[in-house]
Every structure is written in C-alpha cells, then in structure tokens.
C-alpha cells in the first residue's frame, strides 16, 4: 500500500514537473509546479511527517500564487498574458539540471545512512527537528521570529499608504 502510494505520487510529481516546461502559459506553468509540490508533500506525509507535509501544502499554495503574480508581471510579452514558450537557454539549463541531478543522485548512494532503530519513533517530526537543529533549536526559533519581524517592518515602511502619505512630510496635515 505504502509502496504503491509512493510510486503513484512520485510519477505524478515528475509528470507535473515536466508539464511546467511543456505548457505555453505562465499561469498553467505555475499551477503545474504547484501540483508537483503537492504530490511531493504527499511523499513527506507518507514518511509519517504529517506536520511537515501539511506545512508544505500551506506554504507552496501561498508561494505559487504569489509567484504567479510576479511571473505574469515580469514577462515581456504583454505582461505574461499571451501564450509563450517556457524554455530558453536550453543547452545551459540542461547542463545545469543534469549536473545537479547527477550530484544529488550520487549523494543518495554515497552518504552513509544511519541504521534505523528497532522501533519507529512515536513522533517522527519531533525527532527530525531534534536531529536537524540539535542544541541550536532556540537560536533558530529566535532567528525565525527576527526574520519575520524584519519582513513585516520592511513592508510596512515601504508601503505607499504610510502616515507620510496621509499627513504630508511634516505629519501635520493633508498631503492630498
């Protein structure tokens, strides 16, 4: 059952990833990529990492929607609204992709994988977090909050609808 689900999700993820380069629309390419990520999230859930899997679903939907907005915005043909090829610089990108794939695949065979214990851990997500972060968990959490605060403050300061727009440069009256 688990093996069947793994292969179905894996083939679907790769098929959707190929679709990204076959379709001729920025919107469709983005949603094909999203589908690929969602199938990938299914694989993570299959590993027993429920939290990480569902968080990938949450994050990827958000990120792909925002990416669609930016991709459409940056395209040179009228704002990405027209059909267009999704491939360019084919030789260079094939070379890059091939090298990355080969090194990652080699890594799978070369890394000395730890032997699995006799029992499956009660909460694999918790164990994964501990082995990834180790004693630096608190540091990473503080870093996360700091990054988040920086992002919010940057956007708030960069927003055109700030108090200087409402009240003028001297903050005393109407600007418009």
């Amino acid at each position: 059952m688990g093996a069947v689900a793994f292969w179905v999700l894996a083939v679907a993820a790769v098929a959707c990833a190929v679709t990204v380069f076959v379709v001729d629309s920025m919107a469709r390419a983005t949603f094909a990529l999203l589908a690929s990520f969602l199938f990938g999230a299914g694989e993570i859930i299959l590993l027993g990492l429920d939290y990480l899997g569902v968080v990938i679903v949450v994050m990827m939907i958000m990120e792909m929607v925002i990416m669609a907005v930016f991709m459409v915005m940056y395209m040179m043909n009228p704002a990405g609204l027209m059909p267009m090829s999704m491939v360019h610089n084919q030789r260079g990108s094939l070379l890059t992709a091939g090298t990355v794939f080969a090194s990652l695949a080699a890594g799978i065979f070369l890394v000395p994988w730890p032997a699995r214990g006799p029992h499956r851990p009660a909460d694999p997500t918790f164990d994964l977090g501990k082995s990834l972060m180790g004693p630096h968990m608190l540091t990473m959490m503080l870093l996360g909050v700091t990054l988040f605060a920086t992002m919010v403050v940057t956007v708030v300061l960069a927003s055109q609808q700030g108090r200087y727009d409402r009240l003028g440069d001297d903050l005393k009256g109407k600007a418009r």
Binding site: F31, L34, V54, V57, V58, I61, M62, M64, V65
Partner: peptide
Amino acid sequence: FNGMEIATWA
C-alpha cells in the same frame, strides 16, 4: 484547516 482555506487564494 489553514491549508484548505489558503487554497481559496489559488
């Protein structure tokens, strides 16, 4: 629940 609600953006 959060994920399904965000799906409405897409």
